[in-house]
Write a protein that binds this DNA or RNA. Structure first.
Lengths: 231, 231
DNA sequence: GGAAGGATGTCATCTCGCTGACATTCTAGT
DNA sequence: ACTAGAATGTCAGCGAGATGACATCCTTCC
C-alpha cells in the first residue's frame, strides 16, 4: 500500500480529480465548478494494493471511500464453500461511501485480485466535501442512484432464472472489451453456485461457439447469441 | 386516484412534509430548515389508489416520486409464471426517484394491492427541490444509500442459500408487527420460486411451531427460531 | 345467500444443480 | 527449468425444486 503519484505538480492531482468527477455521476445534469474540483483534488490520496492484498475487512467501519483507478477488487462475504462474491470493482468503481453515509460497518471484505491502484478519500475528507460542496453531493447522489438501479437489475437477473440465463447475463454484464478476466471459481461465487455446475454451462456455451474458455479468462465471440440466451 | 387531504390548512401539508422528511434519510446527520420543509410541503400532492389499481407501468419514464403514506404497492416485472416481485413498498417507502435522477425508464410495474395513499412529487418539483435545496438533496442521498445497502443485503440473502434460508430471511425482513400480510403466491414471486415449493417449506415451519399460516397472511410466532434458520 | 375468483394443500414425476472426488493443465515464482 | 499452487475438465449419485394437476377452502361482491 504505497503512493504511486509523483507529487511533481498540482496539475496531476487536478487531472485525477477530474477523472474521479467523470466516474461519479453525470456531468450533464450537474457540472462541477473549478473550485469543487480543486477541493476534491486536495483530498484525494493515491493508494496501491498488491495482488491478493486486503483493502478492507468485513464488519469494520469504513475509513473512507475507495475509487478504483486501475486493477480489480473483489467484494466477498462468507468463507470457503459458502463464499459469495457480492460484486467486482473495476476501473471507475466507487466503494465505501454507502456505509460511510449510513454509519454502518462494511458487510463484505475487499481484496485486490491483481495489482490495483486506488484513489482514497478519508472519511473526514468525504464528509467535508459533502458538507461544503453541495454540487459534489448532488453529483454523488446520481452515482449512488446508479448503484441502486444496478442492484435491482442484478436481483431481476437472478430470480427465477436458469443457470444458463444467469451465466450469460453475468458474462455480458461483467465483460470488458469482450473479455472476462476472472476464474470460473469467482464467477460461480458471483452467482452463488458451485463451480462444476457453472463449468458445465460454460463448456456448453463454448461448444456452441459463443465463447472461448481460457485459463482464468473467457473470450466472448458472439455477444448477440449470448443476449438471446439471457432473455 | 383522488385527493384525500382536505386542504383546510397549510398546517396539514406541513405535517405531511415533516413526515416525508422522517422517511427520507437521517434527521441526525442533516437536519432540515423550516424553509426546506415549507418548500417540500408546497410540492407534495396527495394521491389515492384503489386495491388493484396500477401506479405506473414498466418502460415508462417516471412522472415523479411516490412516497407511500399507507397501504401496500407491489413492484413486479415479467408476466404469468415468470412474474417476479422486485420489491414491496410499505408505509414510508419511496420510489421513482432513482429513475428520475438517472433519466431512465422504470424497469418494473407498480400496482396497489390494497387501498393505498401516496404523497406525490411531480418530476419538475423534485428537480427544483434538489436544485434549490442542497440540504434536502444531501438528505435524499442517505435515503438512496440505504436502498443500495438493502439491495446488497438482498443479494447476499439470495445467493447460494437453500429455500428454507431464503424464506425465513424473507419473512423476517418483510414482517410488520410479527405479521406478513401477503399471499404465498406473492412471497414465492419475491424469491423467484414456484408456489408449491414455498408452500412445502412454510408448512414445515408451521409444523415446527415457528409460524402460523392463514389466508393471505402469516403470523410469526418465534422470531428467534426463524433467525436461527436464516443463518 | 350464492357464485366466482383467489388462495391454500398436496402429490407424482422429472430435471437441474449440488456434492465430493479425481485427473489434467496452466502459471507464477524460485 | 522445475515445482507448488491454482484453475480447469469431468463424472456418478443424490436431493432440492420445478411442473402440472387437482381438490378444497376462504372472501368478496353481487
Amino acid at each position: 500500500m504505497t503512493s504511486f503519484l509523483p507529487r511533481r505538480r498540482e496539475d496531476s492531482r487536478l487531472r485525477e480529480a477530474a477523472w474521479v468527477a467523470r466516474c461519479v455521476g453525470d456531468p450533464q445534469t450537474t457540472p462541477l465548478t473549478e473550485e469543487d474540483l480543486t477541493a476534491l483534488a486536495s483530498y484525494l490520496q493515491p493508494l496501491e494494493f498488491e495482488r491478493g492484498a486486503p483493502v478492507f475487512r468485513a464488519d469494520e467501519q469504513p475509513t473512507g471511500v475507495w475509487i478504483v483507478r486501475s486493477g480489480m477488487i473483489e467484494l466477498a462475504a462468507g468463507r470457503g464453500r459458502r463464499k459469495i462474491v457480492v460484486q467486482m470493482l473495476y476501473t471507475g468503481s466507487v466503494d465505501g461511501d454507502i456505509e460511510l453515509i449510513l454509519g454502518m460497518p462494511l458487510p463484505y471484505s475487499a481484496r485486490a485480485i491483481e495489482t490495483t491502484r486506488c484513489l482514497f478519500l478519508a472519511s473526514e475528507s468525504f464528509e467535508a466535501l459533502m458538507r461544503e460542496h453541495p454540487t459534489v453531493a448532488r453529483r454523488w447522489l446520481s452515482s449512488v442512484a446508479a448503484r441502486v438501479a444496478r442492484g435491482q437489475q442484478r436481483v431481476m437477473g437472478l430470480l427465477g432464472r436458469s443457470l444458463v440465463e444467469q451465466a450469460t447475463r453475468l458474462l455480458l454484464d461483467d465483460q470488458i472489451d469482450e473479455r472476462v478476466l476472472l476464474p470460473q471459481r469467482t464467477l460461480a461465487a458471483m452467482l452463488g453456485v458451485q463451480r462444476p455446475s457453472l463449468n458445465k454451462v460454460l463448456k456448453d456455451l463454448e461448444k456452441r461457439g459463443l465463447i472461448t474458455l481460457g485459463y482464468g479468462r473467457i473470450e466472448i465471440n458472439d455477444a448477440k447469441g449470448l443476449e438471446a440466451l439471457a432473455r
